[in-house]
Design a protein around this nucleic acid. Structure first.
Lengths: 349, 349
DNA sequence: ATGAGCTGGGAAAGCGCTATCTCGAATTGC
DNA sequence: GCAATTCGAGATAGCGCTTTCCCAGCTCAT
């Protein structure tokens, strides 16, 4: 063999069978000793097995266990984009909670493509995960024509548990964030600070989360008798660059008295901040900016960003607990959000 | 049964056996039709099987396949903290590359705890992943006393592939970033901009990556005949808050002429920026700040951060390709880094 | 003593697949 | 026209486990 190493013989990993032989007990006893089944096993035997396992560096084959038991210890998590702090925070929560339940998380990225998402669900279903968590909003109109819903339903029929994060489109358990209420509260606060003329930079038509936030913001303004002209709603990608571009567009076409920008999520808001600055204006002074989510970085941008706090990691944890059948949670309703005022929206003189 | 739903009978998922029966062919033929084995199967039969599979909403049980084939399609990825942009960027790269290879990624977080890391490796080994990627630096002194190395070696002996990212402690394939060279280049550039007195905010003793970056920075300064006093090296957590705290400490104890701070990674640098500001100074004007990594957010902080770009996502992709046996990569050596000068380190008058 | 009732180890039947092997039928060569 | 091949479907032996099921050896009440 061309394997250059010394003693690098390719040993197949030890099987339970090997352990049993090494310990001089039956396969059944070895199995029982190593995973605490309902049945007791003589302490002396147990020790022998444990030692043999350690000696052989045994590691149980999870696939085989899954096949034999008919159930896995896997959680599947789908997000739009792993590098986006919104999703990575949620993912961190899911992973943390999974860890306490000794579950393993498999992750995939949909890249905001419904077809991809559907395909990923199909593949991941093959893993027979105990739970499947889908984060990230879907288009309000579904180009795959309900195929995703059917796929998920089939998965649940087979004993799986689906949890949706912030998308109440189908009839599955859902962790809802109060996008609408949060955005309304933000609008109210901004009005309270003296702002009267607003523009909104949001996602292109058809993204549920973005739509709700816009609607909520309108609600809040309406309470104060302020109307948001359609012209003052700019559509762009739901990303940092989208925020930048949308804001640039807004500024170039002329602000016409707009005093504050509401960006439908924080990464857009951060882009907006940079766009404002690049246009030669001072964010917070010439033009206020507010976002939504309170992702970790927004307290470190300048000026620190006013936003609506969403407990992202908690949402991840909650999604998993919900899937695992914590019914208290199911009753609790939407996750509360909280307006966080920072210097990007100073009180208006 | 207490199942409240209409027609929500809990159907076990269809098995290949069911598909074969439905299609009126043997198990073997069904298997061959659904995954294109080496053997041909009559087109008419194939169609029948495919249709039956669709009708029954069949999804192959990956665990069973893994057991039967003796090999999985899984990649295990260990990172310190999923919500940290450094790791989430790398993870995004791994996931993207895995996707093109039709591999599934399972992710876990070590939370920078070597014991946890070891335990996670043990658990994940049970999955028999094809590849195991460990990102994130380890202490230079290993509290688990080489146990991790042994565990990984055992895993490789059993046919797995280990890839380390930015940690060349063991004898496994590694994606090395040129921390030392990058930091030296940064130092050189800063000197070129007119800076002469530096402080470094870095991780506590014993973190490889941080140590290399410090050493490199010293190298670069040394070329210009500048010495970095030990007093001017502040140790703190390798996180945003660590950067903040370390910088605060530095400022409180008196700057004694320090003109620029080098933070050993970007999240620390971002914390440093905030600390400078909170101390009543203007970052970039009163005190320059530079970081390392070029995580996405640093172009949006104010002033935009000078840093050393590390192609994080590319590193993730590369790690996986390397594991999969792309030997060209193995020969390529460390990943190149590049100094990116931004406004947090303006030319000194 | 005796038989009913526990204990707890071992044999073996799966779990849902893949891959080898078998073997009849169709194809080919001379 | 008949043996020698080739082809491809089906039976079956695993893969590494778990979990019945069986049964020997006990204890204990009668």
């Amino acid at each position: 063999m061309t394997d250059g190493g010394i003693q690098t013989s390719r040993n197949a990993p030890a099987t339970l069978h090997d352990v049993a032989r090494e310990a001089g007990v039956s396969l059944a006893t070895a199995s029982r000793s190593l995973n605490g089944s309902t049945r007791k096993v003589n302490e002396e035997y147990r020790q022998r097995v444990l030692e043999a396992a350690a000696r052989l560096d045994y590691s149980p084959n999870l696939s085989a266990q899954a096949v034999a038991r008919g159930t896995t210890t896997t959680v599947a998590l789908l997000v739009a984009d792993i590098a986006d702090p919104y999703f990575s925070s949620i993912a961190a929560g899911v992973v943390a909670e999974a860890d306490t339940e000794r579950l393993i998380v498999t992750m995939a990225a949909t890249e905001r493509d419904p077809d991809r998402e559907l395909e990923l669900v199909r593949t991941l279903r093959g893993q027979r995960p105990r739970v499947m968590i889908l984060a990230g909003s879907r288009p309000t109109t579904d180009p795959t024509d309900g195929a995703l819903g059917e796929e998920l339903a089939a998965y649940e029929r087979a004993g799986g548990r689906v949890v949706l994060i912030s998308r109440n489109e189908y009839d599955f358990r859902t962790v809802l964030l109060d996008n609408r209420v949060g955005a309304a509260a933000l609008a109210r606060e901004l009005v309270g600070l003296g702002y009267r003329r607003f523009a909104v930079v949001t996602a292109r038509e058809g993204l549920r989360t973005a739509a709700d936030r816009l609607a909520g913001f309108r609600d809040g303004l309406a309470e104060a008798g302020i109307d948001l002209a359609d012209d003052d709603v700019i559509r762009a990608d739901f990303t940092r660059d989208g925020g930048y571009d949308g804001t640039t567009t807004l500024i170039e076409r002329g602000l016409h008295g707009v005093e504050a920008i509401f960006a439908a999520n924080d990464v857009m808001a951060v882009g907006a901040l940079s766009a404002v600055r690049d246009a030669g204006l001072t964010p917070g002074v010439d033009l206020a900016v507010a976002g939504f989510d309170d992702v970790p970085t927004v307290r470190d941008v300048t000026p620190p960003l006013t936003t609506v706090r969403v407990p992202l990691e908690e949402i991840g944890r909650r999604a998993l607990r919900l899937a695992l059948g914590d019914e208290d949670l199911a009753a609790e309703g939407a996750v509360a959000t909280e307006v966080v005022l920072r210097e990007s929206t100073p009180r208006r003189a």
